[in-house]
Design a protein around this nucleic acid. Structure first.
Length: 1422
RNA sequence: GGGCGCUUAGCUCAGCGGCUAGAGCGUCGCCUUUACACGGCGAGGGUCACAGGUUCGAAUCCUGUAGCGCUCACCA
């Protein structure tokens, strides 16, 4: 065998190939005879009668669906230990089959009548044999577990016996009658049709207005008609008695043109009045009606009724071919009318219209669209034709009433008919709504015409002759109307029903209806001058007997092996059928079964399956070429895939769509064809399609071939249809195959016995899931929810067993025999569960699985050994296996794994990379309890405490309201991605929490909703809030780094500033251009100085520096940073920017060209995202980590403000501009943290002047003293190293700072520490929330940061446009008091420790910056 | 015209008073890890046709509108 296809150590090939297995397995089943019913067994019987497919053609996808469903039910029942009889068979389909055979003859130029009846029937028989074989073969291919040994055909001797017996009994019971009535006549097939064999089609016809002269010559009346040719048979004109004209015409008569017949004007409510005379304008008919209706009882069902009401004659003017004829009841043929005799319907119509025109009697003519009945076989318009036919009086209460009484009372619409007879109320519909259809159909029922003028079918078992002897005597008193009168005679003594009746022409007819097996009697009758009726029975007559005939009724003992079947298998369990069948077949089976079997219903349940349509919602049909051949699907996907997919689609909807695709014969590729519109208006695949692979090659679509628009050839072959819908089934079969292979290779020696109670949670979990799957499957099948059953199988196998159990058990299975036993037992149960829908693959795997696990027992899961899966027992799981506790626990495990995988996925961590989880004690214990499952599934190398040290690239996530982290995800730190991920989580959780809060804040909800629901909501809220808090803390962790970095920056900036301002400090003026050209080493802080500010910080040798702010390179504990504090006013490229600097800025020009960093940095800090974002992308080929902007909204600043503005999660802008005060007042209403205000103020003042060279209200050196202090602090090394502060409490920081250094810095750090880790966490959260809200547009942070928005009107507008309904004030107010309180407490706490009143007195330097100079208050530094 | 049903993610469909509206396929990203690429992990994607109403709460119930499908009836 090929390396990739051969069996491995498990003995199973590497992949499942349906074509290799299916025939083999079919043979296996067949040899074992495992689908044969066991009538002698003690098992409970379960029976399904297949709706016998017509032998007209091969099975289509609809059949495949129905049979897949029945097979699933049958196999399920069989595995549950029932004695199953799924009765297969085919239907002779009288007219349909005869028509196809006749059509074939027609191709050879032959007609039915060229043969004797026997010879023709033989030809049909040959066709039937061929298709019956095809159909049965298809059933086997699909894996249908029918009892093929009992296959029936509706015309075989057994069924024929039943037909004869049934007819005889109905005849005997007076439920069959013969009469001359108007029937649906197919002039092409020359047979009567039942109502349901007629299909209505809209036709563009014309409405002609014919004048009929009044007999007395006083004028004429006008009738409207679409069928002028029938006027030859008119026997009256009708008008509505309420017609204003009625009084004047009452009693008058009309002389019928052409014919000259004088006919009455009758009055009948049926007649629609024209709108002009009081007709209903809404009635379309009233719009065209004249108020006078020609009445032709012999050629219109409604006229027939009018005729009956008014005792009118019915004059039949046509023959069986639809041509005008004087030989079928028309006697008063005038000379003028003679000219029309012999003309076809169509010719006669033209001629008559022409005649009326010529005689000036055609008043008008209009186009008129209306529905016309057509024969569903020959397609020609149906002629309502008066003829003598056989009828079953289905309207008799013994039939119709019995059918209605069979309905389950609860499903009856209205008051259910009372009934206590056997079988009453025992039939139930699934889905329930079809009960209504069933019921309504019966309410409009008409007697059922059962005679067909065909040769193919059951010949009517009635012999007749002109009445003789005693029949004639008795018949002499027979009533008009054809009622049959019993004749006691020698014939009746021999079992015949002997009747006599008066025919319409008055003659007496003597009839003998012979029972089954009365050939001798028939011969005798024929010798006595009786002849058998030439007609055959409607196919449905024999179909209606299906549940009886297949079981040998009425004489099961007369047939070998059929004794006792009837009692055992009727009623059957369920009839599964299509919607269109419900009205006729279900009803007729019910009527007959109940009538012949003492009230027994034929089936307890009726399941109506959906109709499969193509992707456009059109019925699949041969002529549209949009059908799918089940054989093609079996070929491409396998029988199991076909079956599974069909079941999966079977929801309780009415229709389901299967988009049809095509297979390119050139490449084998599946593709969606080009569509076009057929003349009928249907969407069809264009006749010729281009190969998707080779544009030059073409193919013919099914539609192209059937419509004749394209002819397949070698160069342009016919393309097969397919649908990728079936992939799902194929994939599942493959999954099952591979899962089994894997399980077998991992379970070499399963323990002989396992008590689940002693097993770890993982094993108890899968057993619990399996037990639930069994329950779910059983419940679904019990209600015919096939899709639900399919889903139960899918979830059990794929989701639970493969995705979780196998993956989790991988590392341990081989060394744990008990686990192996559990694994194999679970799989065994799942394989059994799948068998009814995927019989082949499951059976194919069975021997290997059985061999390995047969002797192994898992307590509570009954899986008795069996040689063959088809007859193996359905799994039985003890209730004790269902363990809600272990499932809940495992759900937590799954949730944690999902959370970790989510991080891995988002961060694109390689699957192989093992990572470390840091978690709380609680989560750690979950991991430990999971028996290594979490580690295995999430790829963990270890689990440690949350407080353990971790690397810079770690990611934090929230689980169960707790914070966890993952370390070792990546080699390169990417804070941006991490923040982005966390922001998403936070947004999601916050949305959820807000939703719950909204609910709970609704008083009505809390008061009126069920307490349980409210409780659930509370729990959900708590959980969401906990997750939110954890995620936010996680962001805090990230933010903490940011904050630290920011402060490093702030410090470095200040440091740089101190240098920058050194000269101005001495001279009072900015440096001059000439001096600034060369970077002055003297202005650079020394490395030790920088290091003193930020541990490991190295100031760049060539600082980016300009008037907008200093640049500095800082290496911190985590980051390699380059800070460039730039003005957003410059929107050009970096060189351009430098150019601008060179031109405009004294400092910048002094520094020379701006160097592009030679090594990648982790953090670039810019004043605003653009244009720097673009710059970093261009220069560095990526978006550099964090854009932390220290800058202002605009250059012409005239004040200082600070505002967090996270334009994106990765951009933190600290904007400074004059809008702050207003913003502060408007929204924040709290003082800016002192450190920030001061720091920014210092920075601003130290760096921002001279940009435009113009003196502004801004006074550059206002805070010079402060800068001087800083500078001195740096110089004198009095600055506290941040490293020293890290890890210290705020108090400690302050302690240290009090004596040693500028309290300012201590305070900064203390605050940061407080914010990040101390009790100020909430405060921190508030700040973060503020940032995030701004980032997500919930507040107009960004907008407000600009000066223009300080204008209330514009701000409002901006708020509207940018943040929708968020209103800045309202948004913050609810919680802001707490915010302020927090801050206040902090201030106090720090103040108490004597950190110095200057810093905490709440005075803002901003006040000094108002346009009106005020004396700066500068308390001395302690 | 009567009856039944449908309209939810790009597609096919679940859900049918209360989880943040789900699945499969398709899409995007990562992964050929010793069961499975007919695979694994992750992501993105929805004003539940529209408009009213009932309800604490509506995709879900009611009414109406529009579109679609099936079915029965309709030969003035």
């Amino acid at each position: 065998m090929a390396a990739d296809g051969g069996p491995d150590s498990t003995g199973l090939a590497k992949s499942y190939r349906p074509a290799e297995q299916e025939p083999r397995i079919n043979a296996l089943w067949s040899e074992a005879k495992c689908f044969e019913a066991r009538p002698q067994s003690s098992a409970a019987p379960y029976c399904i009668f297949i709706p016998p497919p017509n032998v007209t053609a091969a099975l289509h996808l609809g059949h495949a669906l129905n049979n897949a469903l029945q097979d699933a039910l049958s196999r399920h029942a069989r595995m549950k230990g029932m004695d199953v009889l799924w009765m297969p068979g085919t239907d002779h389909a009288g007219i349909a089959t005869q028509t196809v055979v006749e059509r074939r003859l027609a191709l050879k130029g032959q007609r039915r009548t060229d043969f004797t009846r026997e010879a023709f029937v033989a030809q049909v028989q040959a066709w039937k044999d061929e298709y019956e074989a095809t159909i049965l073969g298809q059933l086997r291919e699909m894996g249908a577990s029918c009892d093929f040994s009992r296959t029936r055909f509706t015309m075989d001797p057994v069924c024929a016996t039943a037909v004869r017996a049934a007819f005889h009994k109905l005849f005997e019971d007076g439920l069959i009658e013969r009469g001359r009535r108007l029937v649906n006549w197919d002039p092409a097939s020359r047979t009567a049709l039942a109502d349901d064999e007629v299909e209505m089609r809209d036709v563009d016809g014309r409405m002609w207005y014919l004048r009929y002269p009044l007999e007395d010559g006083s004028g004429h009346i006008t009738v409207a008609t679409t069928r002028p040719e029938t006027m030859l048979g008119d026997t009256a004109v009708a008008m509505n008695p309420r017609d204003p004209l009625a009084a004047g015409l009452r009693g008058k008569r009309v002389r019928l043109p052409i014919v000259g017949r004088v006919i009455p004007i009758v009055e009948d409510d049926y007649v629609v009045m024209p709108v002009s005379r009081g007709g209903d304008p809404a009635d379309a008919k009233a719009g065209v009606a004249t108020g006078f209706l020609k009445v032709t009882p012999a050629h219109d069902p409604n006229d027939w009724e009018i005729g009956r009401r008014h005792a009118l004659a019915a004059i039949n003017v046509m023959g069986p071919d639809g041509a005008i004829s004087d030989r079928h009841g028309w006697t008063d043929v005038s000379t003028e009318a003679r000219a029309f005799v012999g003309k076809s319907r169509e010719e006669a119509r033209k001629a008559i219209v022409q005649w009326f025109k010529a005689n000036n009697l055609l008043e008008d003519e209009k186009p008129w669209r209306h529905a016309v009945g057509h024969s569903y076989r020959s397609g020609v318009p149906i002629e309502p034709w008066l003829s003598e036919q056989w009828f079953v009086k289905v309207t008799d209460d013994r039939l119709r009433g019995a059918a209605l009484r069979a309905m389950e009372p609860a499903q009856f619409d209205g008051k259910a008919p009372a009934g206590n007879a056997p079988g009453d109320g025992q039939m139930k519909f699934f889905p329930a709504r079809y009960a209504k259809t069933f019921q309504q159909w019966h309410e409009n029922l008409r007697d059922w015409c059962i005679s067909r003028q065909l040769w193919w079918g059951h010949r009517i078992p009635v012999w007749s002759r002109v009445a003789q002897g005693e029949a004639a005597t008795i018949g002499a008193n027979a009533p008009e109307g054809g009622t049959m009168v019993a004749v006691p005679s020698a014939w009746s003594k021999q079992g015949a029903s002997h009747r006599v009746r008066r025919r319409d022409d008055g003659s007496l007819e003597e009839l003998l209806c012979l029972p089954a097996n009365a050939d001798a009697l028939a011969a005798e009758a024929e010798r006595a001058g009786f002849t058998q009726d030439a007609d055959v029975l409607d196919t449905w007559f024999s179909s209606a007997l299906w549940p009886l005939s297949t079981l040998g009724w009425p004489t099961p003992d007369a047939f070998p092996g059929m004794g006792g079947l009837l009692e055992r298998y009727n009623p059957s369990a369920v009839l599964s059928t299509a919607r269109e069948i419900i009205t006729l077949w279900v009803s007729r089976m019910t009527m007959f079964n109940r009538h012949f079997l003492g009230g027994k219903v034929p089936f307890r349940h009726v399941f109506i399956h959906p109709v499969i349509q193509d992707g456009f919602g059109q019925r699949m049909s041969k002529s549209l070429g949009n059908g799918l051949d089940p054989r093609d699907v079996i070929h491409s996907h396998g029988a199991d895939a076909l079956r599974y997919t069909l079941l999966d689609m079977t929801t309780d909807t009415q229709d389901l769509r299967v988009p049809v695709e095509m297979i390119d014969p050139h490449s084998g590729e599946t593709f969606t064809p080009e569509y076009t519109r057929a003349p009928s208006g249907h969407q069809v695949a264009a006749p010729v399609q281009k190969s998707p692979k080779h544009a030059s090659k073409t193919m013919v679509s099914s539609y192209g071939a059937t419509s004749g628009l394209a002819t397949p050839s070698e160069a342009q072959p016919l393309a097969r249809n397919t649908s990728s819908r079936f992939d799902i089934g194929r994939n599942l079969a493959t999954k099952l195959w591979n899962a089994t292979r894997f399980a077998l290779s991992n379970a070499p020696e399963p323990a002989a016995s396992v008590d689940p109670a002693t097993r770890p949670a993982l094993d108890r979990w899968i057993l619990s899931r399996v037990a639930r799957a069994v329950q779910r499957a059983d419940a679904a099948l019990a209600d015919y929810r096939f899709s639900e059953y399919a889903a139960a199988c899918y979830d059990a196998l794929w989701r639970d067993f493969c995705d979780w159990y196998l993956e989790a058990a991988k590392p341990s299975a081989k060394s744990d025999p008990e686990r192996q036993a559990v694994m194999l037992a679970s799989l065994d149960a799942i394989v059994r569960l799948l068998h009814p829908v995927m019989p082949f693959v499951s059976e194919a795997l069975w021997p290997a699985l059985q061999q390995r696990r047969a002797s192994s027992v898992v307590k509570g899961l009954a899986l008795p050994a069996s040689k063959m899966l088809a007859v193996a027992a359905w799994p039985v799981a003890a209730a004790s296996l269902v363990d809600a506790g272990v499932e809940a626990e495992f759900e937590r495990v799954q949730a944690l794994v999902d959370a970790i995988r989510n991080v891995r996925g988002e961060r694109q961590v390689q699957p192989r990379r093992m990572i470390r989880l840091g978690a709380s004690v609680r989560v750690q214990s979950l991991c430990n309890a999971s028996d290594g499952v979490i580690a295995a599934m999430a790829g963990l190398s270890g689990v440690v405490g949350i407080g353990e040290a971790r690397g810079p690239g770690s990611a934090v996530f929230a689980f169960d309201g707790e914070e966890c982290w993952l370390d070792g995800l990546v080699d390169q730190v990417d804070t941006t991605a991490e923040r982005a991920r966390l922001e998403k989580v936070v947004a999601d959780r916050r949305r959820a929490a807000e939703g719950y809060r909204g609910k709970l804040s609704n008083a009505g909800y809390v008061a009126k909703a069920p307490p349980k629901v409210v409780e659930e909501t509370r729990a959900m809220l708590a959980s969401a809030e906990a997750d939110l808090a954890a995620a936010e803390r996680a962001i805090g962790g990230v933010a903490g780094h940011l904050m630290r970095t920011m402060f490093a920056i702030a410090l470095a900036t200040l440091c740089a500033c101190a240098h920058t301002v050194q000269k101005p400090a001495s001279s009072g003026e900015p440096v001059q251009t000439s001096q600034a050209r060369q970077p002055s080493q003297a202005t650079q802080p020394s490395a030790p100085q920088a290091a003193a500010i930020v541990p490991n910080a190295v100031r760049s040798s060539t600082p980016w520096d300009d008037g907008g702010g200093p640049g500095v390179r800082v290496r911190t504990e985590h980051y390699n940073l380059h800070l460039a504090v730039k003005e957003p006013a410059f929107r050009g490229s970096l060189p351009g920017y430098m150019e601008a600097c060179n031109c405009n800025n004294a400092y910048a020009t002094a520094l020379g060209p701006l160097p592009v960093p030679s090594e990648p940095l982790d953090l670039y800090i810019f004043p605003s995202r653009e244009p720097w974002e673009a710059w970093t992308r261009k220069t560095l080929g990526k978006e550099a980590g964090v854009y932390l902007a220290l800058g202002r909204g605009g250059f012409t600043s005239d004040g200082v403000s600070v505002l967090y503005d996270i334009g994106r999660v990765d951009t933190l802008t600290i904007a400074a501009h004059e809008g702050w005060h207003q913003f502060s007042q408007l929204s924040l209403k709290h003082p800016l943290p002192t450190w920030m205000e001061e720091g920014l103020a210092c920075w601003m003042e130290g760096t921002r002047q001279t940009r435009d060279g113009s003196p502004t209200a801004f006074r550059p050196w206002r805070n010079f003293e402060r800068w001087n202090e800083l500078r001195n602090a740096v110089r004198e090394n009095r600055l506290i190293p941040l490293g020293e502060l890290l890890g210290n409490s705020p108090q400690q920081c302050l302690e240290k700072g009090k004596d040693r250094l500028l309290t300012y810095y201590a305070e900064c750090w203390a605050l940061i520490h407080f914010l990040n880790e101390g009790e100020g966490g909430k405060y921190h959260d508030k700040l973060l929330q503020l940032m995030q809200d701004a980032a997500q547009g919930r507040i107009a942070g960004r907008l407000i940061a600009s000066r223009a928005i300080a204008n209330p009107v514009q701000r409002q507008q901006a708020v509207k446009t940018r943040v929708g309904n968020a209103v800045v004030l309202e948004y913050f107010n609810p919680d802001f008091a707490a915010f302020e309180d927090e801050y206040q407490r902090f201030i106090e706490a720090v103040a108490k420790r004597g950190a110095g009143d200057r810093i905490f007195r709440g005075e803002s330097p901003l006040t000094e910056m108002s346009p009106v100079p005020a004396a700066p208050a500068k308390p001395p530094v302690k």
